[in-house]
Amino acid sequence: MNYILKDENAVYYECGFSCDNEIFLKLEDAAYFLTDARYITEAKEYIKNAEVVEMDRRDPMKVARTLLRKSKIATLIYNPYEWSVGEFERLSSKLNINFSQKVNFSQQKRIIKSDHELDILRVAARKGADAFDAFAAFVRERGIGLNEKRLFNEAENIFKNYGELELSFSPIVALGANAAKPHALPSDDVLRESELLLLDAGVKYQRYCSDRTRTAEVSHNMVFEKNMKFKDALRQKVYDTVLKAHDASIKKAKAGVRASEIDRAGREVIEKAGFGQYFIHSTGHGVGLDIHELPVIGARSQDIIEENMVFTIEPGIYLPGEFGVRIEDTVIARETDVEIIS
């Protein structure tokens, strides 16, 4: 298969290095990593299985077009979501090549993780879980009285381990009514005793992501566990429903099952409890080099789970103006069940 890549994680998967100005070409038996002079030295040091070629920073398509013309290939596969209209027109203009769209073909290639990748993902998950514990300790000791913006900044520092790690994504630190927004932005709301706190965060280890969500009630002995107790009866009912849905989807998940069946298992629990309209997103997504990969764990997903796929299970209930609850774990699919790594 002849193909071209521009996405950093897709390129990294192919050759072990990427940067913010690159093109990767696989043309028959040859592979080329194109970048400008700023990255040539590092590229030559780290690249595997590809020839490093310097390109003009002002005209990055020139060298790619030359290599394509010399290759005499008939068809080149590309992901249209990696290219702007202008870039693609510059690349493909007046070349006697059939440019064939194949959406997310790189993610499809890496949907099943190798044993090495699984080991890295387990470490990422463990480091992420440690950061949850560290943030809970911060909240217990110094968090009450701080607003969401300050808590968000502290979460970023804790999950980065003050420079040792990168974030999978910007943490979601949401209090009370703000937790009813699945991707809440930090506000000036102040953390008080007995407030509901939702934390969704993850770290990168060797470029691979972790992803986890916990919801807790703030107190001087607060921890992020899955078996939580709340003073308010409605909070407790919603939390117990989400946990039951989470467990139902976990129980359903294994190799050979349709991803939509995993979504359905948890969604039915929430619907039967009367909260169906408040579960407003899919049950999960793949995790790897990207924080959102394949498979899609949703109602309309056509994906069938295979062994060593890695994905999240994250049902939630969001009551506008009141509060929201989400519980998320990352799992590895096995033949008869899943391994929870988060």
Rank of each mutant, 00 (worst) to 15 (best):
A131G: 08
F169M: 05
E307Q: 12
Y32N: 04
F99L: 12
S71C: 07
Y78G: 06
Y39I: 06
Q277S: 06
E117D: 08
M222W: 12
H246A: 04
A201H: 06
L185P: 02
L289K: 01
I120E: 03
L185T: 09
F224L: 15
D329G: 03
F24W: 14
K44S: 00
L319S: 01
S18F: 13
D59Q: 03
S114I: 08
G276A: 11
S249H: 02
I158N: 03
T213G: 10
D29Y: 13
R258Y: 11
R140F: 12
S18G: 10
K127S: 05
D263R: 01
N2Q: 08
L234A: 04
K94I: 00
E8F: 06
G284R: 00
I144S: 01
L243S: 11
Y318E: 01
L146T: 08
A125N: 08
I280T: 14
I291C: 02
R267I: 04
V287G: 03
M61I: 00
E268T: 14
G202R: 07
T66L: 15
V310P: 02
H116I: 13
R122Q: 03
I112L: 14
E45F: 02
L76A: 06
P315R: 00
D189E: 11
R142A: 12
K26I: 02
S93P: 00
Y12V: 00
N49K: 15
A253I: 03
N221P: 00
V269C: 03
N49W: 14
A259Y: 06
S219M: 03
I270C: 08
I112M: 15
I97K: 13
S170L: 12
K160W: 01
I77G: 07
E307G: 03
Y205M: 06
A74F: 15
R192P: 05
D56N: 14
R38K: 13
V85Y: 01
A179G: 05
K44E: 10
F224A: 15
A184H: 05
K113H: 15
F24N: 08
E306Q: 15
G276T: 09
S100I: 09
R207A: 08
E8P: 11
R58D: 15
D290M: 13
R57M: 00
R235H: 10
L76D: 04
S170I: 04
L118K: 12
D247P: 03
R90N: 11
R212C: 09
I47P: 06
V325D: 04
A265H: 04
C19N: 09
